[in-house]
């Protein structure tokens, strides 16, 4: 399937610094796409380029099969990191206003909005003023405003900040639900746990450049570098001689309670792991043989520090 969004060698300069430097990425249709990177890396600029809020100095942005136009922006729902709501306006009226600005009719807007308000448990707030809401409450309203007109592409900037764990889960479920109903979701976040849980693909931007892109599973496996953790009972020397020539030891062997030993090993990419497992199992008591897959948190830190 063709990607819904393709960013092609985009460069954006501000006075005195380059916010985006030759960034390319592809967002597959129907995926949940994580846009990661340290503060000030250029994520928000990238989102703004997609939203037509600013224009790239070089490069192109493609939406579906054509270069993105103003019309396509109406198919993009955007929730900025710093939430934007009229403080003095009533929640319901405000939501209807935004839904209509996004092209819905008044009746349709009210029906759809009431549905969302019920689902997120905030139906009672319809007539409250935004300034009377807590941060989390306002966040929910903002979320509904972003999604109510059912845009094809949703962009959330730090959607989980300001939510308690219960509401974070609620929001995660809703985002997955939107994806299942056909929307594509891009979200920028620092919360690596949520990336592992819901993202299909990611792009990691650091110092204005795309330094890592791809499906989450693949990235994690690659970052693991074919390292395994073996726990066995028996002689350490014997273990080392079995392994020698087939794999490299990483670090020292640790003794564990119950006489077990634990050892990290690296197996070359092209070799089969089954003979190694077989050999260990034959001579020693093999308790555990597990591939080490680094967390997104590790990957993030290593990638940003240039040690991946």
């Amino acid at each position: 399937m063709s990607p819904i969004l393709r960013i092609e060698n985009v460069t954006k300069d501000y006075v005195g610094h380059r916010a985006l430097d030759d960034v390319s990425m592809e967002v597959p249709r129907g995926s949940i796409y994580g846009l990661l990177g340290p503060n000030g890396a250029g994520k928000t600029t990238l989102i703004r380029v997609v939203n037509h809020m600013t224009f790239p100095d070089k490069g192109k942005v493609w939406f579906e099969d054509h270069e993105i136009t103003e019309k396509d922006i109406f198919n993009v729902g955007y929730m900025p990191e710093e939430r934007g709501l009229y403080k003095k306006m009533k929640v319901g009226e405000q939501a209807v206003f935004f839904a209509r600005i996004h092209g819905m009719s008044k009746t349709e807007a009210i029906i759809k909005l009431k549905g969302w308000f019920d689902r997120l448990g905030i139906a009672d707030w319809w007539d409250k003023k935004v300034e009377d809401l807590s941060k989390g409450m306002a966040q929910k309203v903002q979320f509904i405003i972003t999604v109510v007109h059912e845009p094809k592409l949703l962009i959330f900037d730090e959607p989980f900040s300001g939510f308690d764990p219960i509401n974070q889960n609620l929001l995660k479920e809703e985002i997955l639900g939107l994806r299942d109903r056909g929307a594509t979701v891009i979200f920028s976040t620092h919360n690596m746990e949520s990336v592992e849980e819901i993202c299909d693909d990611i792009t990691l931007i650091n110092k204005s450049r795309n330094i890592l892109s791809g499906p989450v599973d693949e990235i994690r496996r690659k970052a693991g570098g074919n390292t395994f953790q073996v726990i066995y009972s028996g002689d350490r020397e014997e273990f080392n001689s079995i392994i020698s020539g087939k794999a490299d030891l990483i670090g020292d062997t640790e003794g564990l309670i119950g006489g077990y030993n634990q050892q990290k090993i690296h197996i070359p990419e092209d070799s089969d792991i089954r003979p190694i497992i077989g050999a260990i199992n034959e001579k020693l008591g093999l308790r555990s043989f597990q591939e080490i897959i680094p967390s997104m948190n590790d990957i993030f830190i290593r990638a940003v520090n240039g040690t991946l």
Partner: peptide
């Protein structure tokens, strides 16, 4: 006001 509250960012995705 709209710039400060970032309401502009939300509206501007839908109107010129």
């Amino acid at each position: 006001d709209e710039k400060q509250t970032r309401v502009l960012d939300v509206i501007i995705t839908s109107c010129k």
